[in-house]
Simulated assay, not measured.
Amino acid sequence: MSQPQEPHRPFFPFGNPFKRISSKGSQLSPRLLSLLNAFEFALTTRLRKLNPKDKHDVLSLAWMKLAMESLCETHTGIKTLITELDLPVTCWDEKWIDVYLDISVKLLDICNALSSELLRLNQGHLLLQFALHNLESNTSEKLVRARSSLDNWRQNIGSKNPRLESCKSILEGLVDSLSLPKVKNSAKGKVLMQAMYGVKIQTVFVCSVAAAVFSGNLENLLDLDVANTTMWAQAFSDLQTNVNGGIREIFSHGKFPVLKELDEVHTVVKNLYPMIQDGTRPIEVEAFSNSSSDLGRKAEKLSQGLDFLTNVVDGFFKIVLSGRDALLCDLRVPDTHADPFLGSNGERLLNELALWLELNRKFLHESAGQSGNAFAEQRSFP
Rank of each mutant, 00 (worst) to 15 (best):
F317R: 13
N311D: 15
M231C: 12
L239S: 00
P282G: 07
F317T: 13
L118S: 05
D238G: 02
T80K: 15
L357P: 01
E6D: 15
A187R: 10
L121A: 07
A62K: 10
N271F: 11
Q277P: 00
N345Q: 06
L114Y: 06
W63K: 00
G245M: 05
P382A: 08
G315D: 08
E347H: 05
S29F: 13
D102I: 04
G158W: 08
R147A: 06
H253I: 06
D102G: 14
K200G: 06
E261I: 07
D294C: 14
D325M: 08
K190V: 07
V243H: 03
D335P: 08
D263H: 15
L108F: 09
F381A: 07
R163K: 14
E300N: 13
L33N: 03
P382I: 06
T83I: 02
Q240A: 04
D176W: 02
L327Y: 03
W92N: 04
L35W: 02
G216M: 02
A368F: 10
F41V: 06
L331S: 02
F256Q: 14
S367I: 08
D330P: 02
G305N: 03
G372I: 09
R348P: 00
L359S: 07
I78D: 02
V209E: 01
A42G: 09
L150R: 05
R147H: 11
F256L: 10
S215Q: 05
Q304M: 08
F130K: 11
D238F: 05
E172K: 15
I283H: 13
W153D: 04
A62Y: 05
R324C: 03
L357G: 04
D335A: 14
V269K: 08
L218N: 10
Q3E: 09
